[in-house]
């Protein structure tokens, strides 16, 4: 079995009486795309928040590259190579596309004062833009991009961090079928570089990409398995796909 890069064990988070994460354990292994699906309100975003460090769990541990990172902040986990993208694009809108892509490289190298360093980092940012097909727009302001381009720029900013694992929160959100297909091809190639935990509603993309799927319902993981296993799972169909058992 491939080694787990990112994993959590027994994660529990309550908001008042509501248990949003209920003893969640899962892992993300080298070379795979692990999709996390579930209906609205299942607790996907809360789980992502706990994995990335934005939300502190009430119980449970998070491990990254064999190291316990439960107590680490978002920036500290990012410096260890955990790259995330946001459900709603969070870009520096007035800065250029290149500057946004550069940010990950700056974070990985430490935000210093040297100008020569910036030129080295810029080469990395341009390479990332080239891969996601935004190289021609490097000088545009991020606010002037189309929605689909902004989604891809989110991924470029994660790429320049030189990550050991990606956590992507609905990268396909708001994309048309064409944009989804394009992004699906892009993510397909990325998994060799670093495994991807993919939170996604677009089932076509999930079924096309995922090596494994975990289904989150009411804060609990009700099933984990390959695409075929999940498609066949009665509990999943009942709870998530809305079919009678």
């Amino acid at each position: 079995m491939a080694e787990a890069i990112l994993s959590c064990a027994g994660l529990t988070k309550r908001f008042g009486a509501l248990t949003v994460s209920d003893d969640v354990s899962m892992d993300l292994r080298e070379g795979e795309i692990h999709a996390l699906i579930g209906p609205n309100g299942a607790g996907k975003s809360t789980l992502v928040g706990q994995l990335c460090g934005a939300i502190r769990p009430d119980a449970g541990r998070v491990r990254l590259s064999g190291r316990d990172v439960t107590a680490l902040t978002v920036p500290a986990r990012a410096r260890l190579g955990l790259a995330r993208t946001f459900q709603v694009s969070r870009l520096a809108g007035q800065d250029t596309v290149l500057e946004n892509a550069l940010l990950g490289a700056v974070g990985a190298a430490g935000a210093g004062f040297g100008l020569r360093r910036r030129r080295d980092l810029e080469a990395r940012a341009r390479a990332a833009l080239d891969r996601i097909g935004l190289a021609d727009h490097a000088g545009l302001r991020a606010d002037d991009l189309s929605h689909g381009q902004r989604r891809r720029l989110e991924i470029a900013a994660a790429l320049t961090l030189d990550p050991c694992a990606f956590v992507m929160d609905e990268p396909m959100a708001g994309l048309g079928p064409e944009g989804s297909a394009e992004l699906t091809r892009l993510l397909d190639g990325l998994r060799a570089e670093a495994p991807i935990l993919l939170v996604e509603h677009d089932m076509d993309a999930v079924f096309a990409l995922a090596d494994r799927i975990s289904v989150l319902v009411g804060g609990r993981i009700v099933a984990t398995g390959t695409v075929a296993e999940i498609r066949a799972d009665r509990a999943v169909r009942a709870a998530y796909l809305g079919e009678a058992p």
Binding site: F86, L91, A92, D95, N100, L103, A111, R118
Partner: peptide, 25 residues
């Protein structure tokens, strides 16, 4: 303003979450 520090500071004004996700406090 042209240094990596300035780049990150500028971005932090506009989108602090993005900057945190890039490993910068």
């Amino acid at each position: 303003r042209r240094s990596p520090f300035g780049l990150a500071l500028n971005a932090a004004r506009q989108s602090p979450e993005r900057v945190r996700a890039a490993g910068i406090e």
